[in-house]
Simulated assay, not measured.
Amino acid sequence: MTPVQTRTRPPVHRRSGTATITVTVEIPTDDPRLARRLTAALGVLAQGGGRVAVAAEGVPALAEAPAAPERSPALVIDVPGREVLIHGEAVALTRLEFELLAFLARYPGMVHTRTELLQYVWDAPDTGLPGRTVDVHVRRLRAKLAEFDALVATVRGVGYRFTRSRDVEYRGTAGASPADDRLLSI
């Protein structure tokens, strides 16, 4: 299998925010297993939310790779049940670790300062708790999240943010928006 043409840094389309990558691959016609393996690999790429189109010279083009089966989220944060599951296995978190994770996940992509986290998670804005308390709890939380530790990102000099991911399901209070769980006013 020899790639003929690839683009390593595809341009992002201004309106849609997506990129198109074109790869041309030569596959010997006498090796059908190689074509099946390549199609399976493209199916894995399609699971990530992208679209994959396959065309071959002399063979009718597939409009799109077969749709991937519906995946269950790898990380589930169940607020009413006060439970965190990684690949279906419960993770033992302390009350503050759970509250910290749930609060950050309620507002994915939003940066929270240590002072805000002390106020909204610890309910202690003026008790004199040092900001390092937040750092220690974040470190312990990341250790327990194992492969998902990168979801709790540090914003240097500011605080922390929960990274958006398709592998995460946030289950808030029934009938309420995530913002209704605990009101955040800035």
Rank of each mutant, 00 (worst) to 15 (best):
E70V: 13
E70L: 15
S72L: 14
P73D: 05
P73G: 02
P73A: 11
A74P: 06
L75V: 00
L75E: 03
L75N: 06
V76Q: 05
V76N: 08
D78P: 04
D78G: 02
V79I: 11
V79T: 10
V79F: 07
V79E: 10
P80C: 00
G81F: 09
G81V: 01
G81E: 12
G81C: 09
R82F: 10
R82T: 11
E83N: 08
V84S: 03
V84W: 00
L85D: 03
L85V: 00
L85G: 03
I86F: 04
H87N: 12
H87V: 07
G88V: 02
G88W: 07
A90Y: 06
V91E: 01
V91T: 04
V91M: 05
A92W: 10
R95S: 13
R95T: 15
L96S: 14
F98R: 05
E99M: 11
L100C: 06
L100R: 08
L100G: 05
L101P: 04
L101Y: 04
L101F: 02
L101W: 00
A102N: 04
A102L: 05
A102W: 06
F103Q: 13
F103D: 08
F103K: 03
L104T: 00
A105I: 04
A105L: 04
R106I: 09
P108L: 01
G109R: 07
G109T: 01
M110E: 13
M110K: 09
V111R: 10
T113K: 00
T113Q: 02
R114K: 13
R114N: 05
T115D: 14
T115Q: 11
T115N: 11
E116T: 05
L117C: 03
L118I: 02
L118P: 00
L118T: 03
Q119H: 12
Q119K: 13
Y120T: 02
V121E: 04
V121L: 03
W122V: 07
W122S: 07
D123F: 10
D123T: 15
D123C: 09
D123P: 05
A124Q: 10
P125Q: 05
P125C: 06
D126G: 14
T127R: 10
T127V: 15
T127Y: 14
G128N: 06
G128A: 04
L129Q: 09
L129I: 11
L129G: 05
L129N: 07
L129H: 09
P130Y: 15
P130R: 15
P130K: 15
G131D: 14
G131L: 12
G131N: 15
G131R: 11
R132C: 08
R132L: 11
R132W: 09
T133V: 08
T133G: 07
T133E: 12
T133R: 10
V134S: 03
V134W: 01
V136Q: 12
